[in-house]
């Protein structure tokens, strides 16, 4: 007993969609198809409607859909560029493109800035960093006194907030990550280089005759 709408939406992307997505990203058509295999498994884990909702996203990250996580919510919001409350396949491919090892460095810097600019004001404010710090402490079950949290914040802002106006702007962030490149490690997924090998089943549904990666 299925609903018509969910059946209609669960189609494979057509050749034109694949060509378009491949042209907009660092992925080949075959790689976009391999990503669809991943998308399909995530988007059908709770409701098989061809879209990833927040619960499905959390389920894929934590193996539990009930676990609320500030950072997973931020990533979800940045993938969901049109703010529809769900991630469609185009959103998924274009967002993962930023995580490709060959993606431009400035795209990774920009995405990480938006990730930490929780309220989207164009600045990473001290209250936002504090909120994230408290979230990571809860997540890791690490207990720190308020005094220690303030010390970490002081040190962080001393290192990043060059003009000492209490907030980190884009230029300060660029400067900071260029001195601390390890902070951008989360912005690169080496798996994306090898996506057709990870999801070889894409060949059974392929729209292209000549599979080239």
């Amino acid at each position: 007993m299925g609903c018509f709408q969910s059946k209609a939406r669960r189609q494979y992307p057509g050749h034109e969609d694949l060509v378009l997505l491949a042209s907009q990203t660092a992925f080949s058509i075959s790689e976009v198809e391999a990503l669809f295999e991943l998308f399909k498994s995530i988007s059908s884990s709770v409701i098989d409607d061809g879209l990833i909702n927040k619960e499905e996203f959390q389920l894929a990250l934590f193996k539990s859909g009930k676990k609320e996580n500030l950072f997973a919510n931020r990533i979800f919001a940045l993938f969901d560029v049109k703010q529809k409350g769900v991630i469609d396949f185009g959103d998924f491919v274009r967002a993962l493109n930023v995580f490709h090892p060959n993606a431009p460095h400035e795209d990774k810097v920009g995405f990480s800035f938006k990730l930490y600019d929780l309220d989207g004001t164009g600045f990473i404010e001290r209250k936002e960093v504090k909120q994230m710090l408290i979230a990571i402490l809860c997540e890791s079950e690490m207990r720190l006194s308020d005094e220690t949290v303030e010390l970490i914040l002081n040190k962080t802002f001393l290192e990043t907030d060059v003009n000492q106006d209490g907030k980190i702007d884009k230029a300060e962030w660029e400067n900071f990550v260029s001195r601390n490149p390890s902070l951008l490690k989360i912005m690169t997924l080496p798996y994306l280089r090898d996506i057709t090998t990870t999801f070889p089943s894409f060949v059974f549904n392929s729209e292209v005759d000549d599979i080239a990666t």
């Binding site: 991943l38 995530i42 934590f62 990533i75 960093v129 990571i136 220690t148 962080t156 990043t160 990870t198």
Partner: peptide
């Protein structure tokens, strides 16, 4: 030791930011 770390170093260790897990079967 955490007091000597930068907040962003700590934040970047969050499981919620580890998208690599999506590719691990």
């Amino acid at each position: 030791r955490p007091a000597t770390m930068n907040a962003f170093e700590l934040i970047s260790t969050s499981q919620g930011l580890n998208l690599g897990i999506l590719f691990e079967k």
